[in-house]
Each structure stands twice: as C-alpha cells, then as structure tokens.
Amino acid sequence: MKAHKIFAWIAIAIGAIYFLVPLIGTFEFSLRMRRGVYSFDAYQSVFTDAQFRATFGFSMLMALVTIVVGMFLIVPTAYWVRLRLPQMRPVVEFITLLPLVIPAIVIVFGYLRLYNSSSWIPFTGSTQGTNILLTFSYVTLALPYMYRSVDTAMRTIDVRTLTEAAEILGAKWPTIMFRCIFPNVMSGVLSGAFITFAIVMGEFTMAALLNRPAFGPYLQLVGANKAYEPSALAVIAFAITWLSMGLIQLVSRFGKLSPARP
C-alpha cells in the first residue's frame, strides 16, 4: 500500500518536471535579452514589431472566418444527419475524422496541384482566392474537433422533439435552425470555436505552403533570425492555447447547466 503510493508520487514528480521545466526555461530565456538583468525587453521588441501585429491580426481574422464558415457548415449537417439521415452517420463521422489521418502537408500538396493558377478552379491565382482556400483548409483541419463538440452537444438535446414542437408552432426552417438548434448547442459551438482558434493561431504548414502572412510562418521566421524573441513568442503562444482551453472548460461547465430538455 505504502510502496505504490510512493511510486505514484514519483510518477507525478517526473511528469511535473517534464512539463514544467521547458515552460520555466522558456520564460526565463525570454527575460534574458538585456545583459546581466532580467527584463521584458524581448516582449517589448515583439509587441513593437509591425510584422507581429500584422501577422497576428491576419491569423486572428482567419480564425474568426474559419469558425463562422465551419459552424455554418457543420451545425446544419450534424442536425440533419441526426434528424433525417441517421443511416449516413457513420459515413459523415468517418469523413470528419479523415483530417486526423491524412497529414496536413499532404492535403495542402493536393490543393496546390488541384487549385493552382493553371487549373479549372484557380484559387491560388489571386490573393483573395488564396485566402479563401486557406480558410477552407483551416475548416478542414478543424473538422474533427468542431464536429465532435457540436455532435456531443446535440446528443444532450432531443433534436426531433424540438423540431416538431417548433414546426407545430409554425416556425420556418431558418427559425428552427437559428432560434432553436443553434442556441441549444451553443456550448458545443463555443468549445469547437475555441479549439479551432487555438489550432489556427499556431498553424504553420498550410499558411507557409500557400504563402500567406500568417502567425505560424512569422514565428518560424523569427525563430530562424533572432535569439530572445522566439521565447517571448512561445510564452505568448502558450498563453493563447491555455486561454482557449480554459474557455472550453468554462463553457462546458455552463453547458451542463443550461441545455433545454424537452
């Protein structure tokens, strides 16, 4: 009894060292820019960099558009599959899991071959087109997470009864979708949104190969050229991930209290 408890604490200690030392190391390194004393100079250098603001803003905008496009695609699909096409559930679920199986670099390689400027649908022929393609690539990457969180939220409500009740009260299709279904799966929509946000902010492969000025390629560029700024950026990136995950926990706690149970 005693021995296994000691063993458990050893495991926790090893885990804590493995997880915390790199974080402490990164933070410590980010403070070392001024010789001899700790300072926040690296952060100041990062925040005053015009390119930081431009790429951060670009990725933020991309993340928001991705979330909106993704949710307009996924919520109605998940709803429809539950209500009318339960036989298609395994197929849709399988498709949403594919982005975890096919590496992102392979997917973007396919885009570059299929949608280049000399093809039928020349997405990469213009900046605007490339931005749209990048958005769709992010929706693809986020598909497994978005679908799962929306579908989990939908499981807790009775979609069929809600729809029938709304129909009896004379609601039309948009009313059912946006005033019945969306509000009831809001916890799933939001947790899907936050994880998408975290993914898009740090994404490197898609943006780099589509040549868009996103945050991920900027991080890589700074890493190759500067000494202390990368650590400051890693701390910032970790804070973003932590914030997104914290918000998911908060939302799922709210979600357990609120869904309508007809």
Partner: peptide, 29 residues
C-alpha cells in the same frame, strides 16, 4: 493534470520547438 494535458496536447508546432531550444539548447536553462 487533466486540464494541463488538454492544453499541452494542443501545444505543438513552432512554439514547442522554441520552448525546447530555450531549455535544452546550447544556452538553454
């Protein structure tokens, strides 16, 4: 541990490389 795992399993990509360079690189902590 579970909360941290949720964060750390999503903390990959370029920043993770920076974190390990700052820890175990030639001038790392």
């Amino acid at each position: 541990l579970l909360t941290f795992s949720g964060v750390a399993s999503n903390f990959a990509g370029v920043p993770l490389a920076f974190a390990f360079l700052a820890t175990l690189g030639r001038t790392g902590l």
